[in-house]
Nucleic acid binder design. Structure first.
Lengths: 116, 116
DNA sequence: AATTTATACATAGCTTTGCGATGTATTGTT
DNA sequence: AACAATACATCGCAAAGCTATGTATAAATT
């Protein structure tokens, strides 16, 4: 079971939401938290995560801050002001979309005003 | 507001589910029903729908049947036996995934056994 | 009657986005 | 010493929906 395609379009929102919740996080920490919180079902890969973080930063929604743990560097990310606003919009849109899909695939569609 | 990316990975499932519900449908009818049932928020484009239908047919999950309405042709699609099975799996997977995402972006994540 | 809109199919090429593979380096475990 | 985990990064691939375009019939509007 590989929901790799389902994740498309949701990764940015997930990252923003986690930063909203936690204040600041670094990349590796995000992958571990998502893995943990999803019961090992959503495994964000480095090849997905880092480009996504860089894009969010380039868009001005998050900022990074390098912190050295011994000789190893960590890049902590946090939301900018525009990022906080974008997070709300993004989360709301995703929830609305998922609600719509849920209705679509679970309810019996009313044929009275359908096409055809 | 463009959930074009969010739709990725869900279109096939939506089509299968609608066919399960309605028995048989033709392409244009699917676009109209989805548009209708989603309150005009999900607008499936021809460039998305027809390739998706062709792929489902190539995979043996649906079969088509041409019907002439006057001089105009309609291609009605319906589920095959494997398609019916796939529909259940596909719908269940999508629902589970959305539930997971919902938890991720709404609940407060417990930091007690998080990463870091 | 002519024009526009809706119905109904289809495909080529673009863009986005997550992934696999690969690379570098430090730290912890066996 | 060897291996796994931590922690960053990028390149090229593949999947999938979209735009634009094309063809054709039917209905609605002017």
């Amino acid at each position: 079971m590989n929901h790799t395609e389902l994740l498309k379009g949701t990764l940015g929102t997930i990252i923003l939401r986690l930063l909203e919740e936690k204040g600041r996080m670094y990349g590796y920490e995000i992958t571990q938290l998502v893995k943990e919180a999803s019961g090992e079902t959503i495994l964000i890969k480095e090849g997905s995560l880092y480009p996504a973080l860089h894009k969010l930063e380039a868009d001005g929604l998050i900022v990074s801050e390098e912190v050295f743990i011994g000789k190893r560097v960590r890049k902590y990310y946090s939301l900018t002001k525009p990022g906080k606003k974008a997070t709300r919009a993004s989360v709301d849109e995703l929830l609305a979309f998922m609600q719509t899909i849920h209705n679509l695939i679970t309810s019996e569609l009313n044929p009275s005003h359908g096409a055809a």
